[in-house]
Write a protein that binds this DNA or RNA. Structure first.
Lengths: 340, 340
DNA sequence: TTGTAAGCGTTATCAT
DNA sequence: ATGATAACGCTTACAA
């Protein structure tokens, strides 16, 4: 006998399959003794209810699907740890997929998860704007979804966000207060709200302190993007005295090139990153960066999702902003103590 | 109508459900025109075959399950990228779960995946030895499994391995050749083959070169493990001239403490890590480390698994060892050029 | 408290 | 080339 089913177990015990079913779903009336007997025998024979059959009839799975762009930077893994903690507690399993920054893969992943009848989805998009309608249709189908960090506009879904505008403003302000002027911003990937928000924060900081900002240079989120742009700046003889980068990877890439070319950080160029990477505190010089509450993001998203699952049908989309922290380190300290 | 099914589609088109089914599984006889008609109407109505029902009857899913201890260090994510690349190519979706270094969670994860009828599993264990019998039973049930890096002994499963013994030997040898003696080894987590293999490589290097090894100190794989042990060494006044650590995190933790306490790396203490982390080349001083062929590991595991799935039944377990590289960096260069 | 039987959405066997 | 129909393993009215 390859796989023992509810029928086999029922036959062995001379009870009906409904009785066995009841034993495994203790919400129904069943005599405690028979239930214990059944569960015991089940254990003995190694019977486990087939969740596929269960899903087919119940249309739910106690699985939660998570889709993120990648796992390589520690940001997403840390968020997932937070989410998993909450979800495991409530008896959910977490199925994770990475979209590898491809919208096509992202869509396939989500479809797989939906087809598998996950009870809900936690998603951080690869890019925004072009996929609104797809996610809207999912929401119309009443599939609980929570987005975090990289989200879609104009969509009635719960979101866990980080105030990129505010923290970009703080980060930039920090440089301004150190006496830097003509600060250059290395801008993140296009089509992401968070990119625009960080740019806006950068600009607002300058308006607030009435200083003139330096260039805003399209860069990207990867180390090699930072390297490329730094090399450009050197080649064009436009090396600034201070840089606010869209994220740590990009900042570190730029730092590497500058250091190789004989520039001293922070004395020649001050640097500030974003989204506190593992490297920030270990690199030399250590990198000032904005730290996001990764674990909290995951936990909040999970709780929002659970709430939504519980209130199936009636549900008010919430947007929650979480707080961060600016970790000031060596890379942005103006030792000269004067305006530069 | 909430969900459109094969029945609805059949009714709309005035054909039988078997015909519709055939249209979606083109291995059966069906007139091309009717198939096109059906597929077109399906597209129009947004019909997609329910994979749950499909799984229930076919007992397969075109999903592959992957279980790893964590995603926080870049090692596992990189392996997964390799695996995913191959599997996507062949039309498989990849469901990933992290066991968080807990054997209980690992088991739950694997059960979830198996219950969901994944066609195969790729696994890196949290710890070994105590779970052989569980995995043996899975293999007895003819579920294709490939283990990588962290595996079980005495089990008829395919494995993709890294020769920890050999590379630990090379790494240690490198220190010995630099003139270091009394090299201390910070040992990884207990119960893992790879921990013992790295220890053995460390010892063999010393035997080979007829030098006396220093202490082998139980440490662990996390940064804080390295910090703790380094502090101990300082407190006990036992700071060695060279350290070979079980992995980079541990090495970096130790380095941090040593640096804080005024020791210079490598002049006072030379350090070598293992499993090339993202930080290795960026930290100061840059850390000598053994690099594993992460992507290749993932690809090889995926291919092994696909082969196994194809040859359902007849299957010879293979163990494949992949090659690595020693990245020599500043942390292990003996600038003094004499024995120490 | 327990049993009977319909049904979840497919595939696959057997007719036609 | 197509249609009927019995599975797949379970849950859940409804009946007993």
């Amino acid at each position: 006998m390859k796989h023992i089913t509810i029928k086999d177990l029922a036959k062995t015990l001379n009870v009906s399959i409904s009785t066995v079913s009841r034993a495994f779903n203790n919400k129904y009336d069943i005599k405690p003794e028979t239930r214990d007997l059944i569960l015991q025998k089940a254990e003995e024979l190694g019977y486990r209810p087939n969740p596929i059959a269960r899903k087919l009839i119940q249309q739910r799975s106690f699985n939660i699907g998570v889709v993120v762009p990648e796992f390589e930077n520690s940001f997403f893994p840390k968020v997932l740890m937070g989410a998993q903690e909450i979800l495991h507690d409530k008896g959910y399993q977490v199925l994770m997929m990475q979209s590898n920054y491809s919208w096509e893969i992202e869509k396939k992943n989500v479809e797989t998860l939906v087809d598998n009848k996950v009870d809900g989805l936690i998603i951080s998009l690869t890019s925004e704007n072009k996929n609104n309608s797809y996610y809207k249709s999912l929401i119309d189908q009443n599939i609980p979804i929570v987005f975090f960090n990289r989200t879609v506009d104009d969509i009635p879904a719960s979101q866990v966000l980080f105030d990129d505008f505010k923290w970009a403003l703080f980060a930039t302000e920090h440089l301004i207060m150190q006496g830097y002027q003509n600060i250059v911003h290395l801008k993140g990937s296009e089509n992401l709200n968070l990119t625009q928000n960080r740019v806006s924060g950068f600009q607002q900081a300058h308006r607030k302190h009435r200083v003139k900002p330096g260039k805003i240079i399209p860069c990207g989120f990867r180390t090699k993007d930072g390297e490329r742009v730094a090399q450009q700046l050197i080649d064009n003889n436009e090396v600034p005295r201070a840089i606010f980068a869209a994220n740590d990877s990009c900042a570190i890439g730029a730092m590497n090139i500058f250091k190789q070319s004989g520039y001293h950080i922070p004395n020649d160029i001050a640097m500030v990153g974003f989204t506190e990477s593992n490297l920030a505190k270990h690199i030399h010089p250590s990198l000032t960066s904005v730290e996001q509450p990764t674990k909290d993001i995951g936990q909040t998203a999970a709780n929002l999702l659970l709430e939504q699952i519980a209130n199936k049908g009636i549900f008010v989309p919430q947007t929650i902003f979480l707080n961060g922290r600016l970790n000031v380190r060596d890379s942005s300290i103006n030792h000269l103590q004067k305006n530069v």
